[in-house]
C-alpha cells in the first residue's frame, strides 16, 4: 500500500480505495453519491487544460464527473 494520493493524480484506468478527504468542506453530495472512505474508484476520463475528470465507483455503471478541485480533495490509497 502506498501513501494516499489525490484522485486527480491517478492515470486513466488506475484504481484505488478512498482513504479520506483533504478538506473538511467536501460537498455532502459526494458522500451521498457513495464516494465515502472505503469505496473503490477508477479514474476513467480526463479533459485537458485542468478540465473535469470522470470516475467510476466499483460495481456501478455511470461515470461521475468531478472538477479538478473535487478530484484533488479525494484521497486515494493505491494498490500495487
Amino acid at each position: 500500500m502506498n501513501e494516499p494520493t489525490a484522485l486527480y493524480t491517478l492515470k486513466i484506468g488506475q484504481s484505488g480505495r478512498i482513504s479520506g478527504f483533504a478538506s473538511e468542506e467536501v460537498p455532502v453530495k459526494l458522500y451521498e453519491l457513495g464516494l465515502i472512505p472505503g469505496s473503490f474508484v477508477t479514474l476513467r476520463k480526463k479533459l485537458p487544460f485542468g478540465g473535469p475528470v470522470c470516475i467510476q465507483i466499483l460495481e456501478t455503471h455511470n461515470l461521475i464527473a468531478l472538477r479538478k478541485s473535487e478530484a484533488r480533495s479525494i484521497l486515494i490509497e493505491r494498490f500495487l
Binding site: P27, L33, L66
Partner: peptide, 11 residues
C-alpha cells in the same frame, strides 16, 4: 458556498 461540479453521466 464553494462552487463544485459533481455530476453523474447516465448511460
Amino acid at each position: 458556498f464553494k462552487s463544485y461540479l459533481i455530476l453523474e453521466l447516465p448511460t
